[in-house]
């Protein structure tokens, strides 16, 4: 069974921005919101050199890592070609203006 956790209001995440979700004893998760109010969640660590993706620029359904400019698809965490790699993605949903994350 998926364990959904309410994490914040949609409006707590800026459009084309993100928030960091901190879990005790586990790695951070980055939760993104794009221009169409779609919300995505990825492991907050670039597979290249560990950069915090939460600090990257969000565009379309992609985010650019702030350290060396790799791009990732927000839906599945796959690196955009020609870069190769992926970071874990997490299920996330918006209900009644609240953001829920499955961890």
């Amino acid at each position: 069974m998926t364990d959904w956790k309410r994490i914040c209001l949609l409006d707590d995440i800026p459009r084309l921005g993100s928030r960091v979700v901190r879990r005790p004893g586990e790695d951070d998760i980055a939760v993104f919101r794009n221009a169409d109010d779609e919300v995505f969640a990825l492991h907050d660590q670039c597979p290249h050199k560990g950069g915090p993706l939460s600090q990257g620029i969000v565009h379309g359904r992609k985010v650019t890592c702030p350290l060396h400019g790799w791009n990732f698809n927000l839906q599945d965490g796959q690196a955009v070609a020609p870069d190769v790699g992926a970071c874990a993605s997490f299920a996330v949903k918006v209900e009644g203006g609240e953001v829920w994350l499955a961890t």
Partner: peptide
């Protein structure tokens, strides 16, 4: 693209605020 990318958005944001100071609003997400 619907809202640019990490290359063009900072450039466009700079051009906006330097061309129309006090009028164009700085966009932190750019």
């Amino acid at each position: 693209t619907p809202n640019g990318c990490d290359k063009c958005r900072p450039a466009v944001n700079y051009y906006l605020i330097s061309s129309w100071p006090h009028e164009a609003k700085d966009d932190p997400q750019s």
